[in-house]
Design a binder for these strands. Structure first.
Length: 785
DNA sequence: CATGGTGGGGCT
DNA sequence: AGCCCCAC
């Protein structure tokens, strides 16, 4: 409503990647470290530096080797590498963990990056003011808090307490709200630290630009408030380029045309003047921000609007031929698929569009030519890595003239090398349950020719395996219900009776008989689960889990807890373990306990136990050393409790197996393609679509050879599921792969009962600033050479 | 060859 | 739709 009197916060994690590495490997704490992105060139590129290392002169922009020179004892943990590119999953997950804590304090949270979020806490501040006496706030309650324009926080507080009588300029109401905002922010940061172990800094001001600005002024692990009347003090010396949106070309342009360098100097110009020199919108924006005014609302957004991955392939790494292009698109497509799987699981949405971007090497001295092409998914498209990579290839070929005019077998060279490749998906469709239910039905009725009873049994076994992890009847019923939704009546009958009557007694034997039959992907996976069933420590965990489910259900009725999960959400989470992280349940349990204790603390505050509030732990003395009963997984670095470690290892094994199987399927697909296109080989020359050219290129002997190790002497059989040729000895595995896919889809397609996104307020983008913000055409032309 | 991989967003 | 800029 009153955009100028909001309380806006920017939370920024301190050297986040380093903190994540330090948490994963506590031995690193206190030592100088920098996280490098794998890159064989000169020790890797540094993307984060902790404060110990910064003190010794290590900065971003340096390579690992330079850091070693400056600081020989520096440790350089590296971003893991998957499919030939950096994989930042663990940091993404860590960022999400943090954001979940933040979200408890306000639904008006905008995730700005992996480690930053804006919070509009205007409402929480108002409510708090009704419940407390601002005069009871003292600097002991606000450790590590700075007020810009004041030597000490106390002098700011006493200004507020004296009702601003000491200064004509002082706006009491504004500063009172800021002070209460700072109090809330210190509670937020304490919660983040208590629940995640991560430290962050914060800026507290009346809008996003200023919050962002002051957040960086005291770091790390500090927070800074910016009273309105201190803006001019700050601007007096503040370089214009420090302000968001002015850090790039536009900022340079402004500074040069006006011949100024500080924000203060920007105030000398009238709005009309600025509009004349730049553009109506940019002019107004500059005029406003020069006075500390920024009307851009904090948007309620937790989930990203797009999911993408890309890879630079510069210099010698540039792609020269179709084979390598296809390889990279496959890898990118696979990553998209995996991340989308997760996303649909968590957010109940699927993308409607994909965009492929690429750059072609230009003649030396010139900038590479970058292009992008989009594709809107049709309802029949199956959102798998295969679709992403094949569509991407089509689009690239279509617009990049990838193939040289045919010259016998050498037509696989690209006209110009590709120096950048990226696939991203977006334009998400929310609440996809209805549509998906139909798709599930398709999947399950597609098997047809296979022995129905065996299919059902294997599905049943897998379903039981799922609910096994859940440990509650509710979860079992839920899963079965979802399965029935997608089954025809005969199957329903069949399975219902089996499960309802025999489950408890026959569980072991069912597993056993299944295992006797085949030792394959699922058998191995199930086997690992079975051994855990036998393990007497596991049931305890499950019991705890079941208890938690009920607890969290109670919590969900607490409307001040925005993250409160429903029982169904918890169940879903448990089910998700099958594909997701087996450790999740224990994490949820721990998280719940922490939430309860921290909520209790917050209630203490609300109840007016102010002496207690004063000790609000900005750095709790909690012992963060890892549990003696847990161990760090060498695969993913996560801490895993010992009694779950077997299971966790199996999870990684399963992932690897699945990946192998996918590759296997791909190889077969490609071989099939090339065989098919052989029939075209002798057809007369005619205009061909790029797609056809693609296929034909697969026929080139060298490319067939690329997909190694296919032995034509081995007998093959057509798979009833996918119609592809499968070596007969690989058939059991291959069928299991399809089962795994089906189950995976079934799991992914189940409804997510709580839709976090929909709980958020949706604002109209009425922000005047939005229109005011961006470099206009004239500026674009100015910089285009 | 040399921050690189991700995101958001505005303009035409 | 496709291009470009900004920022972490």
């Amino acid at each position: 409503m009153d955009q100028e009197n909001r309380i806006v916060v920017l939370i920024d994690m301190d050297c986040f990647y380093c903190q994540v590495e330090e948490k994963l490997n506590p031995q690193l704490k206190g030592k100088p470290i920098a996280v490098v992105q794998y890159n064989p060139w000169r020790g890797g590129g540094i993307i984060a530096v902790n404060y110990v290392a910064r003190a010794m002169g290590v900065t971003r922009h340096m390579r690992g080797n330079e850091a070693k020179q400056k600081c020989p004892e520096i440790q350089l943990p590296s971003v893991p590498c998957f499919r030939g590119k950096a994989d930042i999953t663990k940091y993404r997950e860590a960022g999400k963990d943090v954001a979940k804590v933040l979200q408890r304090f306000t639904p008006l949270l905008e995730r700005a990056s992996i480690d930053e979020a804006y919070l509009d806490i205007t409402d929480p501040v108002r409510k708090r003011i009704l419940n407390i006496d601002v005069r009871d706030i003292n600097s002991n309650m606000l450790p590590n808090n700075f007020a810009l324009g004041y030597d000490t926080l106390d002098s700011f507080i006493s200004d507020v307490h004296s009702c601003g009588l000491s200064s004509m300029e002082f706006d009491y109401e504004h500063s009172k709200h800021l002070l209460v905002g700072a109090l809330i922010v210190s509670e937020i940061r304490a919660a983040v630290y208590a629940e995640t172990g991560y430290q962050c800094s914060a800026g507290i001001a009346h809008n996003k630009i200023l919050a962002k600005l002051v957040c960086g002024m005291n770091k790390p692990n500090k927070q800074t408030v910016l009273p309105k009347h201190s803006v001019n003090i700050l601007y007096k010396t503040l370089s214009l380029k420090k302000v968001k949106h002015l850090g790039g070309k536009f900022g340079d342009h402004v500074a040069e045309t006006l011949n100024i360098s500080t924000m203060g100097q920007l105030q000398r110009f009238t709005e009309k003047d600025l509009q004349a020199r730049f553009d109506e919108k940019n002019g107004s924006w500059l005029y406003n921000i020069a006075r500390g005014v920024d009307l851009e609302p904090v948007q309620a957004r937790f989930n990203p609007k797009s999911i993408g991955c890309c890879k630079q392939l510069r210099g010698k790494a540039a792609l020269q031929d179709l084979v390598s292009l296809r390889k990279w698109l496959r890898d990118l497509g696979d990553e998209i698929e995996n991340r989308l799987e997760q996303d649909s699981l968590e957010n109940n949405r699927i993308p409607k569009q994909m965009v492929v971007s690429f750059s072609l090497q230009a003649s030396k001295g010139k900038r590479d030519i970058s292009s992008s092409r989009s594709y809107n998914f049709s309802p029949e498209d199956e959102l798998c890595g295969e679709i992403f990579s094949s569509k991407a290839l089509e689009l690239v070929m279509d617009s990049a003239e990838g193939c040289k005019p045919t010259d016998g077998e050498l037509n696989r060279m690209l006209k110009s090398p590709i120096t950048f490749l990226g696939i991203s998906v977006g334009k998400f469709d929310d609440n996809i349950d209805a549509k998906k239910t139909k798709k599930i039905k398709d999947y399950f009725s597609a098997g047809s020719s296979k022995d129905v009873s065996q299919t059902d049994e294997s599905v049943r076994i897998k379903l039981e395996r799922c609910v096994e992890k859940d440990g509650t009847n509710a979860g079992k019923e839920y899963v079965l219900e979802k399965y029935f939704e997608s089954s025809d009546d005969v199957r329903k009958e069949n399975i219902t009776s089996k499960i309802s009557t025999e489950t408890e007694q026959r569980k072991e034997t069912v597993y056993q008989s299944s295992l006797d039959r085949q030792e394959s992907f699922f058998a191995k996976y199930l086997n690992s689960g079975r051994s855990n069933v036998a393990n007497d420590r596991t049931p305890c965990t499950r019991a705890a889990c079941g208890q938690t489910l009920h607890l969290s259900n109670a919590e969900a009725s607490n409307d001040t807890d925005y993250s409160g999960s429903t029982i169904n959400e918890e169940i879903n989470r448990s089910i998700a373990l099958f594909e997701d992280d087996p450790d999740d349940v224990t994490r949820v349990v721990n998280m719940r306990q922490l939430l309860k204790t921290s909520e209790a603390k917050l209630e203490d505050v609300e109840d007016g136990d102010r002496a207690q509030t004063g000790t609000a732990p900005i750095e709790p003395e909690r012992n963060k050393s890892p549990d003696i009963n847990s161990v760090e997984c060498s695969e993913c670095g996560k801490t895993v409790s010992l009694d779950k470690f077997d299971e966790h290892s199996d999870y990684h094994l399963a992932l690897k197996l699945r990946e192998e199987m996918r590759q296997e399927v791909r190889r077969e697909q490609n071989r099939t393609k090339s065989v098919l296109s052989e029939t075209n080989k002798n057809s007369p020359n005619k205009k061909e679509t790029p797609e056809k050219q693609c296929n034909r290129s697969d026929n080139v002997p060298s490319i067939v050879n690329f997909f190694t190790k296919f032995d034509r002497s081995i007998e093959t059989k057509l798979c009833a599921e996918c119609g592809k040729k499968v070596p007969i000895n690989k058939l059991p595995e291959h069928l299991d792969f399809h089962e795994a896919q089906k189950l995976s889809r079934e799991i992914n397609n189940r409804s997510s009962v709580v839709n976090v996104t929909s709980a958020k307020r949706k604002r109209k983008s009425s922000s005047p600033v939005k229109k005011n913000k961006v470099p206009c055409k004239s500026i674009d032309l100015f910089f285009r050479q």
